[in-house]
Amino acid sequence: MATGGRRGAAAAPLLVAVAALLLGAAGHLYPGEVCPGMDIRNNLTRLHELENCSVIEGHLQILLMFKTRPEDFRDLSFPKLIMITDYLLLFRVYGLESLKDLFPNLTVIRGSRLFFNYALVIFEMVHLKELGLYNLMNITRGSVRIEKNNELCYLATIDWSRILDSVEDNYIVLNKDDNEECGDICPGTAKGKTNCPATVINGQFVERCWTHSHCQKVCPTICKSHGCTAEGLCCHSECLGNCSQPDDPTKCVACRNFYLDGRCVETCPPPYYHFQDWRCVNFSFCQDLHHKCKNSRRQGCHQYVIHNNKCIPECPSGYTMNSSNLLCTPCLGPCPKVCHLLEGEKTIDSVTSAQELRGCTVINGSLIINIRGGNNLAAELEANLGLIEEISGYLKIRRSYALVSLSFFRKLRLIRGETLEIGNYSFYALDNQNLRQLWDWSKHNLTITQGKLFFHYNPKLCLSEIHKMEEVSGTKGRQERNDIALKTNGDQASCENELLKFSYIRTSFDKI
């Protein structure tokens, strides 16, 4: 039985969820670079991206490699990797027998973001014989899940209580170790020597080791999670996991709180800001991140802002960003909400898709409305799209047979046209069989910064309504002859009103 693990408890099935942008060198404390989270699957090609990484700022997932063999891993080693800020997950990587050479110096898994409450997941690794993470000293947050690894031993010899604050939620089941077939031998045991430290858990006094050649490092209890030197002297209180010299914040392997210019500090002093819960960055760093993602459509890219001495992905609820200094300031009234469309555009074809934009005031991208039916549609669209004030790209209304009016965009005031449909149009209306009105132009103002209007096959939309939009939106004169079809717009509506004058002759039985 794995020490510190839980057996036999019912657990939810383990679901495996399925960018080499360097964020800056980590400095003297770390020998390499800070790398983003990685999802490495199918083959070993991307694994080489770990070569210079000291910190993975995010998670590391290595999974679904069915053609790899043990010899493929023999020359692979990433000794610079010290810390993973989120979680480490391995799933069905064939041929991998140990992690001792792959990650010989991995010391800390912070667990800032977890995989279903777990910071370390080893699942269905069919050839893994031992973990071998002999320098792993601290899992700051989260638990361990090690399950269905039929060859995995050296679990009962690990004292997880020396690595985690609590072992109650560890789930370590259905491994070879369960069948008591392992016969784990710690260093020196074969020669009758006791080389590794022994600890007591559940009444068992057991030597602690990761492999037959690597003991588990056990520091004096007084050192807590700070770690200790090879001689057993406690590291500085700002260290986490390990250090090369005692009581020196510049000799830590990793930091308990924050890293700044080669030393570990309790908090980031001005003019620095907390970033990702582990390091200090200056304003320029946060500003660069903001600008890199301002026009990016890459998933996970955030326009970072500053709030409460932190550089964070977005302002919290009730705050909006001051564009001059990136500071989050309290909103006066309802907060603006910028919604970034991942692929640059979004099609609204149902109430469900409209709900995804609920509360958005600025759309960074283009909207395509293609709704053919739905219950209580006008009210639903207004509830979900009615706060949109600005669209950076274009607005396209296409084959939306259920629409009679666009009044559900009740606050839309600006279409920038930074991206144009077919390279020309910022407003595009095609084949809307029941569209009769755009907006009530006596109450609604709309500016279209650039781009043209396109109207074709809107049989109940009168040309007068379209011409009014040209005047109000500032697009009059931009359109070419064929942009607004004269014969297919309003051709099934009563669009022309003329005053009919009647004269009559009164007659009676005795007068003409």
Rank of each mutant, 00 (worst) to 15 (best):
Y30A: 15
P31M: 15
G32E: 10
E33R: 12
E33M: 14
E33S: 15
P36Y: 14
M38H: 13
M38Y: 09
N42G: 04
N42Q: 11
T45V: 12
R46S: 13
H48K: 04
L50K: 00
E51K: 01
C53K: 00
S54D: 01
I62G: 01
L63G: 13
F66Y: 14
K67H: 01
T68R: 13
R74D: 07
R74T: 07
S77E: 07
P79D: 04
P79F: 03
K80H: 08
L81K: 00
I82C: 06
I84E: 00
I84L: 03
T85A: 04
D86P: 00
L89H: 05
Y94D: 07
L96A: 02
E97Q: 15
S98H: 02
S98G: 04
L99A: 04
K100H: 15
K100V: 06
K100S: 14
F103K: 00
P104V: 01
N105I: 02
L106V: 03
L106P: 00
V108H: 10
G111I: 00
S112M: 13
R113W: 06
F116R: 06
A119I: 00
L120S: 00
V121N: 01
V121R: 03
I122K: 00
I122D: 01
E124K: 06
H127D: 08
N135K: 12
I139Y: 01
I139C: 02
G142K: 01
V144C: 04
V144W: 01
E147I: 15
E147V: 13
K148G: 05
K148H: 02
N150V: 08
E151W: 09
L155T: 15
D159P: 12
I163F: 11
D165Y: 14
D165L: 10
S166L: 09
V167A: 10
E168V: 12
D169C: 05
Y171P: 12
K176D: 13
D178S: 08
N179V: 11
G183Q: 09
C186Q: 02
C186N: 02
G188L: 11
K191C: 02
K191M: 13
T194S: 11
N195M: 09
C196M: 03
T199C: 10
V200Q: 10
F205T: 13
C209D: 02
H214S: 12
C215M: 15
Q216R: 04
K217M: 09
V218W: 06
V218P: 07
C219Y: 07
P220W: 00
P220L: 06
S225N: 13
H226P: 07
H226N: 07
T229M: 13
A230M: 05
G232Q: 11
C234S: 04
C239Q: 01
S244Q: 05
P246A: 13
C252A: 00
V253D: 14
R256Y: 10
Y259D: 14
D261C: 04
C268S: 00
P271E: 14
H274L: 09
Q276W: 03
C280Q: 01
V281D: 01
N282E: 06
N282D: 01
F283Q: 06
F283E: 13
S284M: 10
C286H: 03
Q287S: 12
C293S: 03
C293L: 06
S296P: 05
S296Q: 14
R298S: 12
G300D: 11
Y304W: 15
V305R: 09
N309L: 05
K310N: 11
C311A: 05
I312M: 09
Y319C: 10
M321W: 13
S323A: 12
S324L: 09
C328A: 03
C328D: 03
C328K: 03
C328G: 02
C328Q: 02
C328S: 03
P330M: 11
P334W: 05
